[in-house]
Design a protein around this nucleic acid. Structure first.
Lengths: 367, 367
DNA sequence: ACCCGCGATGAATCTGGTT
DNA sequence: TAACCAGATTCATCGCGGG
C-alpha cells in the first residue's frame, strides 16, 4: 500500500473484488498512469432492458430489442470509461481491446468523453480459430485502441524501445502475435481452460513496454486471471486489478505469486535522443573544441563562421546553428547539429560528434 | 438504363452528381445488391507536417472532409447509412471503410440501424506512410466493415473464390495490400494526385469477388475517381456512382471509358513470390522464449544480456543482436541469429532455432 | 538491356521546454 | 498563457536518368 495526497491508500499490487465501477470510484482521482481494459461484450442483458426514456419494450420488432440491448451496453461502457478517466492522471492513457461486437461502441464513447485516440492497433492472431461453416472470413484479429486521457496530454511512448523490438524499424499499428495456448494457458481443476478469453502475455508485454515506465501504476478493471498484473510485475510496474468473479481472483492470486520480476538492467529500455541532456552549442566554443572564427561547412558546401558567443555568421544572416542552417536551405527548420561540419586532419566531421563527446563525459558511461 | 418494378429507371453504369443522400433517396428502394462506401474520414489536422528531410506532407485538407463536431459527423453518418439501407435489397450488404477517426462512429451507427455486422476487415498496408515525428505507431492499416442489411439476411459470400485467391487457405479478416501508387494513381494536369484518397483496385477486386456475383448492382455513394466503378466493370458487375465534385466525376468518366471487362483477371492473381517473413528478435522476448535478463553466449565465449525491448547489453555496448555481435568481434557486421546462443537443459542452442519455430507457426500464412 | 542511385511521396488527428 | 525556438524525426516503392 502506498499513501498519497489526501491520506487515501492506493492498493498497489492487489486484486480488488466487486463491481469495477464502484471500485474505481473508491480510488483517489488522478492516481494511475495507465488503464488496460478487456471488458466483456456478451453481457446478459435480458430482463433489465429499458429504453432511454424508461418506456417498456413491447417487442413488436426485434430491431427495437436490439436497440435496447445496445443502449444498455452503451450505458455500461459510458460508466466504466468515465470512472477510468477519473482515476487517470492528467497525462495518463488507456488501452481497450475488443472485437467488432463491441469495439465500435467503445471507440465512439472514448471520443465522446474527450479521450484522444492515438492509434488503433490490430492484434493479428497468427493462429486463429478457423471459420468452420465457411460463411464469413476467418476472424483472425482483435482491435485495441490506445488513447490519452485528453487531447494535448503528454502521454508516455517509448518509441525507441518499440523500434528495437521490431529490429530497428518503426513499430506499426498491426501486431502479429499468437493467441494464448500451451503452458501459458491457465487450466482449472478439470483441465479445461480457466478463462474463456485469456490474453497472451506477449500482447501485454508490448503494451506495457510501449506506454509505461518502470514504477508506473497500471489499472486493469476487468482483471480476469491476471495477465496484466503478471506482465506488470515482470516488468517492474505496479498494478491494481479489479475482478468480480472469485474463481478468477483466486487463480490470478496464485499466478501472481509465481511471477518474478526481471532484473533491473533488463528493464532498461533504449531511450531516444530527446531524453538526453541538452548541450548548448556555445559550450563547444567555451571548451575550445571549436575556435571563434572557425568556418563550418554544410553537406552542400555552404559555409558560416563561428562567433565567440556560439552564434554563426552566414550570408546576410546571423543566429543559432539551427537558424542559419534553415535560412541557407530555405527550410522551415534545420537540425544544426547534423547539418554543420568542421574539418580536422583533412576530414569533414559533423559537429554532433563533439556533442556526443561532451555527453559521454557527463554520464561517465558509454551507451 | 434498366426498368424495374414501379416503372422507375435504375441509372446503371452512370455517375450521378449532387448530394449522395438526396440521390439515394431518389432511387427506387430495394434495388441494389451491394453498397461500397468510402465516406470522408473527418480528419482533424492542426498544423503542417514535414518529413525529416523537411519536405512537406501533402495532407487531406479538402473542404469535404471538414465537420464542425462529432454531432455533425454523426448526423451525416446516420442519414447516409439510412438512405443506403433503403435502396439495398433485403439480402443486400454494405462495406464501409475508415480509420480510427471515423470508423467507430460508423460501426456503432450500422449496429444502431439494424445492419448486421459480418466481419470487420483490416487492410494492412504493405507500404504505409511512416510516423515522421516518432510520437505514435505507424498508422499502417485501415478498417473495413462488412454488414448485411439485417440479421438473418442471405448475403452473398463466395467462400471458394476467396479461398483460391488465397492459395487454397481460408481467407482471413486481415488483408495485406499495397496502397495505390505508380501508374494506377490518377494524376491531374499538374502531375499531382487527382484525388487525395484513391483506393487500390486490388482492394475493390477482393471486396467484389467476395460479396457479389456477375450482374449484381453495386452502389458507391462517395464515388471519387471511380475505383469501385472501374473494378465493377472489369468484373462484369453493374455500378451506380454518386459524386458531388465535378472534377472527380470528369476524371472518373474518362477512367471508366478506358476500362475493359475481364482484361484484368490474369493480372489479379496475387504474386506468389513471398520472402521469408522477417522475425524481429524482440518477438522472442515478448513471447517468453527468452527472458529479459537472460545471458546469451557467443561461440567464443563472449556474453551479453537480453533486455525487455529486444536489445542486448554487452561490454560497454548496447544495441541489436547484430550490432553487439559485430562490436564484440571487431567485425563490420555480424549475423546475430547464428552468432548468439542460449542454454536449455545444459545444451547450447543458437537463437536462430527460436526464429525457425516462429516462422513455422506463421507458415501457411496467407496474405 | 540492365543496374544503381536519387528524388518523390503516401487518409497524419505527429514536439516540448523555457521565457 | 502565449510566444519563442532548439532540435528530433521516415519506410516502402516507383519512376527516372545516367552509366
Amino acid at each position: 500500500m502506498t499513501t498519497i495526497k489526501g491520506g487515501r491508500a492506493l492498493p498497489l499490487n492487489t486484486i480488488l473484488s466487486g463491481d469495477c465501477i464502484e471500485q474505481m470510484n473508491s480510488l483517489p482521482e488522478a492516481s494511475v498512469d495507465l488503464v488496460f481494459a478487456d471488458p466483456p461484450y456478451n453481457l446478459q442483458l435480458k430482463g433489465e432492458l429499458h429504453r432511454p426514456d424508461n418506456s417498456r419494450v413491447d417487442a413488436v420488432d426485434d430491431h427495437w430489442d436490439q436497440f435496447d440491448s445496445f443502449a444498455a451496453y452503451d450505458r455500461f461502457t459510458r460508466d466504466w470509461l468515465a470512472a477510468a478517466r477519473r482515476v487517470l492522471k492528467p497525462n495518463g492513457a488507456i488501452w481497450v481491446i475488443g472485437s467488432y461486437h463491441n469495439v465500435f461502441r467503445m471507440g465512439a464513447e472514448l471520443q465522446n468523453q474527450g479521450y484522444w485516440i492515438l492509434n488503433d492497433v490490430v492484434w493479428r492472431k497468427s493462429n486463429p480459430m478457423p471459420n468452420f461453416r465457411g460463411k464469413r472470413l476467418t476472424n483472425a484479429h482483435e482491435t485495441l485502441i490506445w488513447a490519452s486521457r485528453a487531447e494535448g496530454a503528454k502521454y508516455t511512448f517509448n518509441y525507441e524501445a518499440l523500434k528495437s523490438l521490431n529490429e530497428g524499424v518503426q513499430m506499426r499499428s498491426d501486431w502479429v502475435l499468437p493467441i494464448c495456448t500451451g503452458h501459458e494457458r491457465l487450466k482449472d481443476d478439470k483441465g479445461d481452460k480457466a478463462h474463456p478469453t485469456q490474453k497472451p502475455e506477449s500482447l501485454l508485454h508490448r503494451v506495457l513496454v510501449a506506454t509505461t515506465n518502470p514504477g508506473d501504476v497500471v489499472l486493469d478493471p476487468f482483471f480476469g486471471t491476471g495477465t496484466t498484473g503478471a506482465v506488470a510485475k515482470m516488468l517492474g510496474r505496479d498494478f491494481i486489478g479489479i475482478e468480480r468473479e472469485e474463481r478468477y481472483r483466486k487463480i490470478a492470486e496464485e499466478r501472481l505469486s509465481r511471477v518474478r520480476r526481471f532484473d533491473r538492467e533488463a528493464l532498461m529500455v533504449s531511450s531516444s535522443k530527446r531524453a538526453e541532456p541538452r548541450v548548448p552549442f556555445g559550450q563547444l566554443v567555451e571548451r575550445g573544441m571549436l575556435r571563434p572564427g572557425e568556418v563550418l561547412v554544410s553537406p552542400r558546401g555552404k559555409t558560416a563562421k563561428v562567433r565567440a558567443d556560439g552564434t554563426l555568421v552566414g550570408d546576410a544572416m546571423t543566429g543559432s546553428i539551427h537558424q542559419v542552417g534553415a535560412a541557407l536551405e530555405g527550410a522551415p527548420s534545420c537540425n544544426g547539429w547534423t547539418y554543420w561540419h568542421f574539418k580536422r586532419d583533412g576530414k569533414t566531421v559533423p559537429i554532433d560528434v563533439l556533442r556526443q563527446q561532451i555527453r559521454s563525459e557527463m554520464s561517465g558511461r558509454p551507451h
